[in-house]
Design a protein around this nucleic acid. Sequence first.
DNA 1: ATTATTGTATTAAGCACTTAATACAGCGAT
DNA 2: ATCGCTGTATTAAGTGCTTAATACAATAAT
Lengths: 123, 123
Amino acid sequence: MAWRLNADRPIYLQLMEQIELKIVVGEYAAGQRILSVRELAADAGVNPNTMQKALAELETRGLISTQRTNGKTITADSEKISDLRIQLAKNEIVSFLQSMQGLGFNKEDICGLIAKHNEEEEK
Amino acid sequence: MAWRLNADRPIYLQLMEQIELKIVVGEYAAGQRILSVRELAADAGVNPNTMQKALAELETRGLISTQRTNGKTITADSEKISDLRIQLAKNEIVSFLQSMQGLGFNKEDICGLIAKHNEEEEK
DNA sequence: ATTATTGTATTAAGCACTTAATACAGCGAT
DNA sequence: ATCGCTGTATTAAGTGCTTAATACAATAAT
């Protein structure tokens, strides 16, 4: 998955989200060692300090652990990771439904709109 | 609709989004005069300059017009407003589907997840 | 032992956003 | 004519994010 960074929001937040995503979809597997801060920063095209900030935040959430001079690894707790995936999906659903209802669409109509969208996409 | 402002993103962007929402759901009706910049700013709890920036951006998008010394009004083009509502909904759908697929869910499963979420919400 | 790589910390600079405090020009109401 | 409200512009200050350039301590590899 390529890095997609946008100037609208703090970059370290976007890095956090996308690293989380790489973890929950298995691009970064449980227990796996990740690239160094400097390498990740170069890969994402950001300053090492910015990447460091994102990784430090993820460490406080228990998703990453650090071996002081030997790199960082993804948590080995795979249940924590699958729980996170479910939680992220729930957040997406709740947020989406709120937005659609805020736009004046009924809860019952929303799946129909998605189906219609998928059909139009087929063409 | 109350103002919901968050420190994570620029406030003027959030103001723009929420004013857009008030327009498309009719809280600010087509052709209607809105409160003064200062009043809106006080209502939202932000600096008048910040509200002014949001309103100026919306004016460049044609949603608001200004009578130099007599306030601002919502565009009278109600078709433009309904088009905007549809467009915003489409954006929500596309973004939601992308996020869910990014989390590893199949397009076919998503409506089921929403239905399941609605059921659990009933209780 | 030396070297390279690791995470981490510090300092300085630039930038955008936000707030605050003013100020000004134009128009309506009085 | 005067007063008040309108949008708009300006200046200054503070804050957080980002980058850049270093520096240091600890460990793995040689």
